[in-house]
């Protein structure tokens, strides 16, 4: 099993629904966010290109955040999901420094928190909260090891990119372009 997410920058409208859904699903405290929206504009009026991305932890294959963690609080579970065990985390911030995507933050209670790929849902075969809410169906969650999964098909049929591949983390959130 290799969980991944595809994010269609061509359909996303940058509404932030995925952000709010994550907030209410996972009790993300106000002022913090496990996912967020980036808007990129290129070109000169009137020939412009707009890219909208919903970003979150990339659940990298090569996980600097897990490697730098001194306690093992950051770890990888089934399907390659990167998680943090709250009461093993000492709040040293090493993993935050280690993540090139600024996907982690200190929860006000002290431990480090981040996107979990909603493993409490996905382990039951449900979509993640952000995927399930997206009104434009821009988000697809699934198993890359399954050739017939919608996400595998999408990645076969569409052009995609990952963020900052030069950071060497082998991200598993794919941006369809």
């Amino acid at each position: 099993m290799r969980y991944a997410m595809a994010m269609d920058t061509k359909k996303c409208v940058g509404c932030g629904d995925c952000v709010v859904a994550c907030q209410t699903e996972n009790n993300v405290p106000l002022g913090y966010a496990r996912d967020w929206i980036v808007e990129k504009v290129e070109g000169t009026y009137p020939s412009l290109n707009l890219e909208l991305r919903s970003e979150r932890c990339n659940h990298c294959e090569n996980t600097p955040c897990v490697r730098t963690c001194p306690t093992g609080a950051s770890h990888v579970i089934e399907g390659g999901i990167v998680k943090v065990t709250h009461d093993e985390c000492i709040g040293c911030g090493a993993c935050i420094q280690a993540c090139p995507y600024e996907a982690r933050y200190f929860h006000p209670d002290g431990y480090v928190d981040k996107c979990t790929f909603c493993d409490h849902r996905t382990s039951k075969g449900q979509d993640t909260a952000c995927v399930a809410v997206c009104p434009t169906h821009s988000l697809t969650f699934g198993d890359l090891d399954d050739e017939n999964s919608p996400i595998s098909k999408l990645l076969r049929n569409r052009k995609w990119k990952t963020l900052a591949p030069e950071a060497g983390t082998k991200p598993n959130v794919y941006f369809l372009i």
Binding site: G14, G16, V19, G31, Y32, A33, W36, I37, V38, E39, K40, V41, E42, G43, T44, I96, E102, Y105, F106
Partner: peptide, 15 residues
Amino acid sequence: MKEELIISGRNIPNI
């Protein structure tokens, strides 16, 4: 001109 911004207002303390 190139413009790239976080539009969801993400503003996490210390990040």
